[in-house]
Nucleic acid binder design. Structure first.
Lengths: 248, 248
DNA sequence: TGAAAACCTTGACACAGATCAAATCGGAAA
DNA sequence: TTTCCGATTTGATCTGTGTCAAGGTTTTCA
């Protein structure tokens, strides 16, 4: 029977932008105080751009609530999303002035920010923060590489199933329904955003969602509220290794 | 007129796996000695697999000569390359036991390796090494994201042009021919490997290379030896921002 | 040097997903 | 509640790239 990766992390520990409790727990007294002193919050409305590609980015940040996307756009308007930021995710480039992608809020968004200079100073003096940041960046690189497999080799149906599976696994608001395999969540993306994420058109996204619904793998209430009727079947449709993301 | 990013880095500095001289230069006396003590070399023949996805990887390494690829494969055999390692590139995951992709030598390959444990110890005690590693990882993440744009949104012709442009810019053996815009290099990949990199079939790769040749953007001697006849036209065909990768 | 094995090119055709074009739905504002 | 407008679905058709197939070319190794 399928079990999910339970999200054991959250935005916590005095809003330290380092994801896992296990690591935040290592931030103590002095360090936490310093983080408190340099942190501030920013809010964005759904649709607002947080920062444009090429702009100077003088802070690093952790998503507190809401969803943001990273995207790149070609001259003629073709767009590809290259990252999805959910609560507790980190964004920013210690050691670099500007970013190479647009960051956009797709829902109302609250981020916990740290000005870069003091954050970098802190990284230098507290090795485990830099350490953890390196691990997180390597994890992100792994996700990016998995996404490359999706973009280069998966069919439209597999792409949709993969995206639903990933959101379902990461979405903290997901609730297990009675029985076993059913999961419920709200899509934080429009069809067009999903298309830009998957390298498809919005029409193809719509058609494949309809197909998954017809096949009883998922069901919808309204356009955004999704129930995964059979998580195993969804994984199957995603073309992932059969035991990917499951425990026991 | 087009100028290339001149590769100002190289595998140097006592084989320190940190890429740029500017940083290696900060490795001194004691540190260099420790690196010397834990380093060793490994050679692989063209086609040999360095490590399989899921295997334990107890070392980190820097490519001294030759070319390696990182790739992921689906159960039914569909393959996607997710990384290209050229001389001076780094591979390995401090803080993780295993890798999520196959590493394969596509030419004869020499790597300078460091056992992971002592390397990690050194990272802890010399902050600038971890620092630099984080920067390199972030750079790699940026490349991965650019590649996602390529995989998701570019046409076959744009994909081929992008790959040629990237190899030309990074290949240390490239030689400027008389005049201005011509560049010469040897492809380190077969048509099939290029296809796996670009999310295409080898037939499409072959056809698009023929098309670029017919359009006088490139010319070939044999199958591997490429002359870029007009770098600007190649960039144009790649669909990149018109000033990407150029100076002045 | 010759023969086999890779590797590559080209052609004909098929098909998944793109494009163009209408509906239809659903949430927000009045 | 009604109206409106953006978001979504669905249909018809087109096209870029995949698939299958047949030669051709380069490299390797005896």
């Amino acid at each position: 029977m399928a079990m999910l990766d339970t999200p054991t992390f959250s935005h916590a520990c005095g809003d330290c932008p380092i994801r896992y409790r296990a690591v935040c727990a290592r931030c103590e007294g002095d360090e936490l105080e310093r983080l408190e002193q340099i942190k501030y919050y920013r809010s964005y409305q759904a649709g607002q751009t947080v920062i444009w590609s090429g702009d100077r980015m003088d802070f690093v940040a952790s998503v507190v609530s809401g969803v943001a996307t990273l995207s790149q756009t070609m001259e003629d308007g073709r767009r590809q999303m290259v990252g999805l930021l959910l609560p507790s995710d980190f964004v920013g480039r210690p050691g670099r002035d500007s970013v190479a992608y647009d960051v956009t809020a797709t829902t109302d968004l609250v981020m916990c920010c740290f000005r870069k200079k003091p954050f970098e100073d802190m990284m230098l003096s507290t090795p485990h923060v830099g350490q953890r940041l390196l691990e997180m960046t390597l994890d992100e690189l792994d996700s990016a590489r998995e996404w490359m497999l999706l973009l280069g080799r998966k069919t439209a149906r597999e792409k949709i199933a993969s995206l639903l599976s990933i959101i379902a696994r990461r979405d903290a608001s997901l609730a297990l329904k009675q029985g076993s395999k059913r999961l419920v969540f709200d899509l934080p993306l429009t069809r067009e955003e999903m298309a830009d994420y998957l390298g498809l058109t919005l029409e193809t996204v719509s058609r494949q969602i309809s197909a998954l619904r017809k096949d009883k793998v998922i069901s919808l209430e309204g356009k955004r509220h999704v129930t995964i009727e059979d998580f195993d079947a969804l994984q199957e449709a995603a073309g992932d290794d059969s035991d990917g993301g499951m425990l026991s």
